[in-house]
C-alpha cells in the first residue's frame, strides 16, 4: 500500500478524445438539415351549411380576378398579367389612392380602435380571387400566392409603421414569442387591429376542371 502511494498516478492519454469528438461531430454534421420552415399561411373559407343564406353579389369593381391557366399563364381580370407588376397592381387595387372607379370601393364603415391613434380608417371592400386549373403547377400557384402575401404584408407594414413605429413582422413576433403573457397580449391586440383595418382578402376559388382531364 505504502508502495503504491509513492507511485504517481499515470495520466490518462486524452489524445483520442479528439477522435471521438470528431466522430460525433461528423455524425451531427451529416444528419443536420437546416430546414427552416417557411410557409405561407392561409385560412380556408368557412363551410356554408345553409343554402338559404343569400349572399349579396359582390360588385365587379371590388373583385380582382387572378387566373392561372393550365399552361401556367397568369391572367389579371381577363388579360395577360405580368408577375413583376402584380404586387403593385394588387396594392393599388386595395388601397385605391386616387379613388378610381374601376378599383376597389372603400367602405363607409370606419374602423375605430383605441389602439389606432390616427383614428378613422377606411376599409377596402376589395377581394382578390385566385383561380387555378387542375393542371396548373403548384410552383406557379405558390409564386403568385407569395406575391399576394408580400403585397398585403407591405400594406400592413405601412399601417404598423404609422401607428406603432415598428414593422408588422416585429409586432407579430412579439405577439407570439416571449414569457410575459400581458406583453404578448398587448402586441396580439395591435396585430388584430391592423388585420381588422386590412384583412387579407384573398379568396382561393375552386380550381376549374381542365378540358384535358378525362
Amino acid at each position: 500500500m505504502a508502495k503504491n502511494k509513492k507511485r504517481e498516478v499515470q495520466e490518462i492519454n486524452a489524445s483520442s478524445m479528439a477522435d471521438i469528438a470528431f466522430l460525433l461531430l461528423v455524425f451531427f454534421l451529416v444528419t443536420t438539415t437546416f430546414d427552416s420552415d417557411y410557409a405561407i399561411e392561409r385560412r380556408l373559407p368557412a363551410k356554408i351549411d345553409t343554402k338559404d343564406t343569400v349572399s349579396k353579389p359582390i360588385e365587379p369593381r371590388n373583385v380582382f380576378i387572378l387566373l392561372i391557366n393550365k399552361r401556367d399563364e397568369l391572367f389579371v381580370n381577363g388579360e395577360r398579367g405580368d408577375m413583376k407588376k402584380l404586387k403593385e397592381d394588387v396594392k393599388e387595387f386595395i388601397k385605391n389612392p386616387a379613388d378610381k372607379p374601376n378599383l376597389s370601393e372603400k367602405s363607409e364603415k370606419y374602423v375605430q380602435s383605441p389602439l389606432l391613434k390616427n383614428g378613422r380608417y377606411t376599409k377596402s371592400k376589395g377581394v382578390i380571387t385566385l383561380q387555378g386549373d387542375r393542371l396548373t403547377s403548384y410552383k406557379k400557384y405558390i409564386a403568385v400566392q407569395g406575391i399576394l402575401t408580400a403585397a398585403f404584408e407591405e400594406m400592413r407594414n405601412e399601417i404598423a409603421q404609422r401607428e406603432f413605429q415598428t414593422s408588422y413582422a416585429e409586432l407579430k413576433e412579439k405577439a407570439s414569442k416571449g414569457n410575459n403573457e400581458d406583453v404578448k397580449k398587448k402586441f396580439a391586440e395591435r396585430v388584430d387591429a391592423i388585420d381588422d383595418v386590412l384583412p387579407m382578402a384573398i379568396s382561393e376559388a375552386e380550381t376549374r376542371k381542365s378540358a384535358e382531364k378525362k
Binding site: I40, L44, R134, T136, S137, Y138, Y141, E206
Partner: peptide
C-alpha cells in the same frame, strides 16, 4: 412538391375544408 398539379392540392383543400380544418400553410 413544386411540380405537383393543382388538382391534387385542391382535393386536399376541399377535404380539409369539409372537415372544418381551416388553418393551413403552404410550405415554401
Amino acid at each position: 412538391d413544386k411540380n405537383t398539379k393543382m388538382g391534387v392540392v385542391n382535393d386536399i383543400k376541399k377535404t380539409l375544408r369539409d372537415r372544418e380544418q381551416y388553418k393551413i400553410a403552404y410550405s415554401s
